[in-house]
């Protein structure tokens, strides 16, 4: 079976890769491109650990074929920090102990960034519903919600 050739932009860099038609974007990121920050927790879109953005839109990379990435702009956790400068969300997740095992953390950060990009001042309820597709089993979500609130406040200059 011949592979498909895909040209795409990942974290601002143009990238090309080959994939099989059945490969998901998550497969391509993790196994072909070496970007293992997105995790596979369920492969059914129920846990959000594989969250990335496609043209700025939050998606589960397990629910998208790799071939669909042709010509799209993909952003992953690996591109969230600006070189050695952490994004305020990353900083507040660290300072607020918003992670324990850390497996869900990349997905939460990508999803939270997608929220704050659209809504710089979300309510607690808005944060909770926006992040309902990201499962965390360690924290009970408390410190995650607070970290997002604190990052939002910092980004607003509050």
């Amino acid at each position: 079976m011949s592979k498909l050739h895909v040209t795409t932009t990942i974290n601002g860099d143009s990238r090309e890769f080959l994939c099989e038609p059945e490969d998901t974007l998550l497969d391509a990121l993790r196994n072909t491109l070496g970007l293992t920050g997105a995790k596979e927790g369920c492969a059914t879109g129920d846990c959000g650990a594989c969250s990335v953005t496609v043209n700025g839109r939050l998606v589960c990379s397990c629910l998208m074929l790799a071939a669909e990435a042709e010509g799209q702009e993909i952003d992953t956790i690996e591109g969230m920090a600006d070189h050695d400068k952490l994004h305020p969300l990353q900083k507040h997740f660290l300072e607020g102990a918003a992670l324990q095992c850390g497996i869900c953390t990349p997905g939460f950060l990508v999803a939270a960034k997608a929220l704050l990009d659209k809504n710089p001042d979300p309510t607690e309820t808005e944060i909770r519903y926006h992040l309902a597709g990201n499962l965390c089993r360690c924290t009970g979500y408390d410190k995650i919600i607070r970290a997002v609130q604190n990052a939002a406040a910092e980004m607003r200059g509050a």
């Binding site: 196994n31 293992t36 995790k39 956790i77 952490l86 990353q90 102990a97 850390g102 953390t105």
Partner: peptide, 23 residues
């Protein structure tokens, strides 16, 4: 004290290597 955990940056940047991350 509430220090920042030493494995933290790896975990917020996607660098931390879990069970399925090794090839």
């Amino acid at each position: 004290q509430r220090v920042v955990r030493p494995d933290g940056i790896d975990k917020v940047t996607g660098k931390a290597q879990y069970g399925a991350d090794l090839i």
